[in-house]
Structure formats: C-alpha cells, structure tokens
Amino acid sequence: MSEHPTASLDDVVHQKHRLGILTVAAEAKRVEFGYLRSTLELTAGNLSRHIAVLEQAGLVAVEKGYEARRPRTWVSVTPAGLAALAAEMTALRALVERHVASQP
C-alpha cells in the first residue's frame, strides 16, 4: 500500500504563510520584504519570524542593503527551497485527489 500523502508534508514548509512566501519568491529572482508583507497581509514581526524559520532551514536566502538611503531586505528562494516547494505542492495535490476519490 502506498504511503499516505500527509507523510510527505514538511512542517517547515506546510505552514500557510511560509508556503505563501516560498510561492511568491519562487516566481522571481528576489522579492522585497515590503512586497511580501503587503501581498501576504502580515505584520512585519510575523513575516520576519517566518522568513527566519525558512532561512534557518536553508530554503530562502536573505540579502540586506540600502536603496536611496532606505534599508531594504530582499528574499530569494534557494534550490533546496524550490525542491521543498515542489514536493509540498505534489503532496497537497495528492491529498486533494485522494479526498475527491474517497467522496461517495
């Protein structure tokens, strides 16, 4: 019997906001902190915590700098982050398919 799709879910990636961060970051070379905050509708503190978790897991890289004297933080997804996101999406789709198939 095949393994249940929930076994493939990664706790670090599966959290809704972290999944959102990875999804947006995977679409671009890099994403600015302010853009993520407004797109995901998170507070700065909350977003910082989620980014820190992803950075610690090696799924995103954080780059801090200045532009026109304003501090800016850019987030980019790493190859490990891309792989983790792809695995998570596959597991989520498998779960939905399983749920639909089990409906009477």
């Binding site: 809704k16 999944l19 959102g20 999804t23 947006v24 679409e27 671009a28 994403v31 853009y35 797109t39 995901l40 999406m89 989520l92 789709r93 779960l95 939905v96 749920h99």
Partner: peptide
C-alpha cells in the same frame, strides 16, 4: 486543502503580473 491550493495559485498569478 483545495482552498489553500487556490490561494497559492492566486498568489502566483499576482506575483507574475506584478513583475511584468
């Protein structure tokens, strides 16, 4: 779960549109 996948698809679409 399907809602989550839908939300993620919306995020992806928005990110693509914003960087055009």
């Amino acid at each position: 779960m399907a809602d989550l996948l839908g939300d993620l698809a919306d995020l992806r679409r928005r990110a693509r549109a914003d960087r055009h």
